[in-house]
Design a protein around this nucleic acid. Structure first.
Lengths: 343, 343
DNA sequence: CTAGACTCGGAAAGCGTTTACTTTCGCACC
DNA sequence: GGTGCGAAAGTAAACGCTTTCCGAGTCTAG
């Protein structure tokens, strides 16, 4: 490995001068600067970021800790974060905790000293590990996580409001027996969406809540779809807690010869890119997840730059929006019309 | 920040003893070890990875450099790499170069000293930057990149073979006017797939190659679809260089009232998760992209562990497989049958 | 009772940087 | 012609850690 010493030797100056010349700090004669640069180029010298960050105290890297890396949801999130990071000249360390708080803790530990900030999405009950594992001096922003468990700034999408609005939308279209496929047990977003569903149903005069278990995966949605289709008093609409489950459910319904939306309406949450393409296209709640990531990173960057500005601890809630497509029976020729070009 | 010194002070031993006690190196009395561990826990001490890697020369981190982070293709890749990395106890630094060789170079520079190895996907013509920017001592593995430009170990999917097989499949089904929507100009995979398409057509007796421009994006596929649909002598089949373009093309065809597969067959490449869900489901070439990532990381890890084992410079080519679904006219009731459960 | 082997823990070097401090030098000013 | 000053370059400390080397004990054996 070629170090600053090698450059100093070749340019016949001290290492301090090399550092100054290369970083444009302090004063160094143009002639010498030139000589140093030539030597550095010749040797293909690049400073060792680790050593550098040891002394300057900045790594220009932030970590993104996610429960999983699979699927369009996280892909969108990573994309948003990446875009903002690049804009800020920050590097991105992506890590997945696999819903396991032990792994998450060890991941955070290993990150110590190599990141300037942490962006964590900890939707489950394991959020407590943050207190234990995360150094208190590390700027941290939470995503879609329980706010009361931690004193960190948090960004979340309006899961409750979105779910309530979606359920109301179905009620407004005349559905009376609306089932809900819930997200994973213990998951914050799952609970919020369930809460929104319940809130909309309350006092609406429609059939009481009908909740079937799920886990946010396509397979889970498929199984839930089988349950729904096999029920004695079949619901006339199903609101799945996310799009992936709605898609799985759709497959199960198709196999059970339940037509969507004629026999049963079906809606999701998230508006992942896939939602436009299934047939019928999925009515869903759009949560602009890339923007969520982007904003979270902006906030984190702010925290990093002005360590003091910790006053805005309050959670920021991103609005959501209902996207009506064919699967809820809205369009006459469902499946044909709304499959337009993406965003 | 709490350092090893603080722990030493609290445990009333020297910093050397703290290091030994925490890393289980050297000999230290159980009683003392216990005392140190208690102190470390109490202070929430985690070693500064930067400082540590400075001396041990290992960061246990590898970087994954991708042209972009958007879409299911990269999501799958990241997932495969992440899985393998986690298994090896490695951390993952994800960076996107946005097809810009300058950015890629600066990204690699900034990574110097904080990674043990580099996994780079550089499909474009900018691959030359690797020579300039990547330290020669850094273990590096290339993904889906031109092999002749660099002397690095490379993993690629069999783009040529897959494209040829797909085109042959269409020929076998009786299609005679097969068009190809090509991938981005200068992109290695685009060229390989185009080459495969041409090879299959050569001497087949079918109409000569009909290539329309594309860029691997859905929008590009959409525009290409409009071109195809508007042609005077319309092709009876279209083979898009990837699934995203096929999907975009499908939308354009639908708008132009061209039925798939009745009026025109349509196939893609990659078998992204979405392919199963469009209607009709897409016949495509499956490239197990997660496995590609996984294998690439395994290979890189091998390189890191045994610096010497650089003999196997030869490119590793992963086989692909044709997945027949409704969009090529194979199934009688296209769109109904093959939408089974995922993988 | 002391020499030698062994165990434990401390002091210090060193990893590759940056930067505060120091030194050297040329030059203007009184 | 001495003093002071600013520019330019060098010296060395520091960042937080690991690890080598060494000294101080402890134990056993002759």
């Amino acid at each position: 490995m070629v170090t600053i010493k090698d450059v100093a030797r070749v340019a016949r100056v001290s290492i301090a001068t090399v550092s100054r010349a290369l970083n444009n700090k302090g004063t160094v004669r143009p002639e010498i600067r030139e000589r140093v640069q030539r030597a550095a180029r010749k040797l293909r010298y690049t400073p060792h970021s680790g050593a550098r960050s040891l002394i300057v105290g900045r790594t220009h890297t932030v970590a993104l800790l996610l429960p999983d890396l699979h699927g369009e949801y996280f892909s969108e999130l990573i994309r948003g974060v990446d875009r903002a990071a690049r804009r800020r000249g920050l590097h991105l360390l992506v890590s997945s905790s696999h819903g396991n708080s032990g792994e998450a803790a060890s991941a955070v530990q290993a990150l110590n000293g190599r990141i300037d900030g942490l962006l964590a999405m900890v939707p489950g009950e394991e959020a407590g590990f943050l207190h234990e594992a995360v150094p208190h001096t590390l700027p941290t922003v939470l995503l879609n996580s329980r706010t009361h468990t931690a004193e960190y700034p948090t960004l979340l999408v309006d899961d409750f409001g979105g779910a309530r609005a979606m359920t109301s939308h179905l009620l407004g279209r005349g559905y009376r027996r609306i089932a809900h496929i819930r997200g994973a047990e213990g998951n914050f977003q799952a609970e919020e969406r369930l809460r929104g569903y319940r809130a909309a149903l309350k006092g609406s005069g429609a059939a009481p809540p009908m909740v079937v278990g799920g886990d946010f995966t396509e397979e889970g949605g498929y199984r839930a779809g089988q349950v729904v289709a096999g029920q004695p008093e079949r619901p006339d609409a199903v609101f799945a807690a996310n799009d992936m489950m709605a898609v799985g459910c759709l497959v199960a319904l198709r196999e059970a010869r339940v037509r969507v939306p004629e026999d049963m309406a079906l809606t999701g949450f998230d508006d992942i890119p896939l939602a436009r393409f299934v047939s019928p296209p999925l009515t869903t709640v759009r949560a602009d997840i890339a923007t969520l990531g982007l904003r979270a990173l902006e906030r984190l960057a702010g925290l990093i730059e002005a360590k003091a500005a910790g006053d805005a601890q309050v959670a920021e809630r991103l609005p959501v929006q209902i996207v009506v497509r064919g699967s809820c029976g809205a369009q006459p020729s469902a499946g044909e019309r709304s499959a337009g070009l993406p965003r």
